[in-house]
Design a binder for these strands. Structure first.
Lengths: 224, 224
DNA sequence: CATGAAATGAGAGTAACTCTCAAAAGTGTC
DNA sequence: GACACTTTTGAGAGTTACTCTCATTTCATG
């Protein structure tokens, strides 16, 4: 979807004739969705995640609490959900089939970071920080990683000929996800300083080739 | 009453030297703890996890709901917590310092499985099954894996000379944990058939050497 | 404008926690 | 055994995320 306008958070409906195939209803729904999101963001920045209740969010977004739950199944989803997943999935599919899939993954990860940063730079930080501070948010992050793991499994299976549901592929995909998740936590714990994409590259190196100094086999470890 | 379970956990026949320094208070605490646990196990087997409320658990364990929460911070912890962690930590520390740490880890994992199976064979299955079925339980499993990751980091740092809090070590530890977690899910999804330790070995092979057929670099992938 | 479909709001209900405070039970001392 | 002292427990009220239902409003359409 090219619903870029939806990402324009505070922009009122002042762009009349830009989307022919979208009725008033759909437009309102997007607006409500975004209103709930941005209400949550500001409230969480102001008072913290736990102190922010659904009722407050509903008030500030000028909807009823019922509506909030109609749009987002859980409080964590308000903070963590976005529309990039489909874009990234297409991006992954668009990679050449003979490209080493680890390179494909690298490419998609960079794309993901670029999207997140240019579109809403402060949201990336907020998410990473909440991932560190709030267990429930971290849990939800893991859950969505696990979903992403399914895609990785598919990509790996496609290009290696291994069974997508076999133990080996599953373990590998999940270990990848775990490693990438840790990057975000590391970034947030260190004050969100530095380029996240650099960290991501370092992490991918580890996941691809093992630890830098002492190899996984560990027999040659006397490295000062 | 379920005094049997408490006797099983303390096993006076096995460890005669542990008896003297435990007063009535401590003994009762252990008994209550175990009563809550076994009440939960049977109720969950009977009606499922979500259908089982804290009040029911408290009733069957013959304590008040307040007491349940005093012993376990969350409902998931009742199912997932045990006393093996310290044992395993000591086991890890007891490994020779020049052993490749991946081998150490392998050893400890096998010990963990052996403990869990001999002590309470059905609990391992229940946990694995709940991990698949109940998102909250899965989330809590990940959380405790993350805690275990800290130990892994220490072990890796000790033997490789790398920084325990550096990105590389953290990513590696977390990817390990993710992979091992997936083993349990895989096992449960396939009906808990076969030896869990065999699966664990296969997973460790993947984590140590990469995927079997197509190597991580992926350039030599034409393997039927 | 009328008619049907979809979105919303209001409210009641559930269950996992949290907090507080008074009663009860275990511990050490005389 | 009676005594203070500490720890554990139970009872109950309160919070909050989330669910369900139903009546009302709002959009779409012929």
């Amino acid at each position: 979807m090219t619903t870029m306008t939806a990402a324009r958070i505070t922009t009122p409906a002042d762009r009349p004739a830009e989307r022919p195939p979208m009725g008033l209803r759909e437009r309102k729904k997007l607006k409500t969705r975004q209103a709930i999101r941005s209400a949550t963001y500001t409230l969480v920045e102001e008072q913290g995640y736990d102190a922010t209740t659904i009722e407050q969010i509903a008030d500030r977004a000028e909807v009823s609490p019922s509506t909030v739950f109609r749009y987002f199944p859980t409080k964590e989803d308000i903070v963590l959900t976005d529309e990039y997943d489909e874009i990234l999935l297409e991006e992954l599919r668009a990679r050449p089939a003979d490209e080493p899939w680890m390179d494909s993954l690298r490419h998609v990860m960079h794309k993901a970071l670029a999207l997140g940063v240019t579109e809403e730079p402060e949201v990336s930080r907020l998410r990473a920080r909440l991932g560190v501070e709030v267990p429930a948010v971290r849990a939800r992050m893991v859950e969505s990683m696990s979903a992403a793991g399914l895609l990785i499994r598919q990509a790996v299976a496609d290009r290696t000929g291994l069974d997508q549901d076999g133990l080996e592929v599953r373990v590998f995909a999940m270990s990848l996800m775990g490693g990438l998740m840790e990057v975000s936590l590391y970034w947030a714990e260190n004050g969100c300083e530095g380029e996240l994409s650099d960290l991501m590259d370092r992490a991918m190196d580890v996941l691809e080739h093992g630890l830098p100094a002492g190899k996984p086999r560990g027999e040659l470890r006397g490295k000062p």
